[in-house]
């Protein structure tokens, strides 16, 4: 398996780009975007192995994106990020087909575990 390509979508720009930088330092190929429209366009034009997606965003939110992605990319693993105290939204996302979800503040090692689990890659293999 080549290096995994990850797309991070979060309207909190600092969070999205810093997460991307940390994943790149760990050997992943990573893109960060701050809105659902740009992300859907990128998904239609390029290949990504995993999508890391914020649930609450302006415009198209994470759950609306999930609905679209399940039509166009049924096999793309989606890991949801939620800032909510309650996991209700993330659980709705899980029912819509997300692989897993993580609460903010982010534990980057947990995200990496989820990426590996969602793609079937082993942790000791190269990303």
């Amino acid at each position: 398996m080549g290096r995994l390509r990850i797309l991070i979508v979060d309207d909190e720009e600092d969070l999205a780009f810093t997460m991307a930088e940390r994943l790149i330092l760990r050997g992943f190929r990573c893109e960060a975007m701050t809105n659902g429209i740009d992300a859907l366009k990128a998904l239609s034009e390029e290949h990504f192995d995993v999508l890391v997606l914020d649930v609450k965003m302006p415009g198209i939110d994470g759950l609306q994106m999930m609905t679209e992605i399940r039509q166009t990319h049924p096999d793309l693993p989606v890991i949801l990020i939620t800032g909510h105290g309650s996991a209700a939204d993330a659980e709705r996302g899980m029912r819509a087909g997300a692989f897993d979800y993580i609460m903010k503040p982010i534990d980057i090692e947990r995200v990496i575990q989820m990426i590996h689990a969602s793609t079937g890659a082993k942790k000791d293999e190269k990303p």
Binding site: E12, E21, R22, L25, K56, G83, P105, I106
Partner: peptide, 25 residues
């Protein structure tokens, strides 16, 4: 406001994590 503060803390967490990553490297 609690959502907003959680976002702020998350960003601080990521910056701190990135600083740590760079120091380890």
């Amino acid at each position: 406001i609690s959502h907003e503060m959680r976002n702020v803390l998350s960003v601080i967490g990521e910056y701190a994590g990135l600083l740590d990553d760079l120091l380890v490297l």
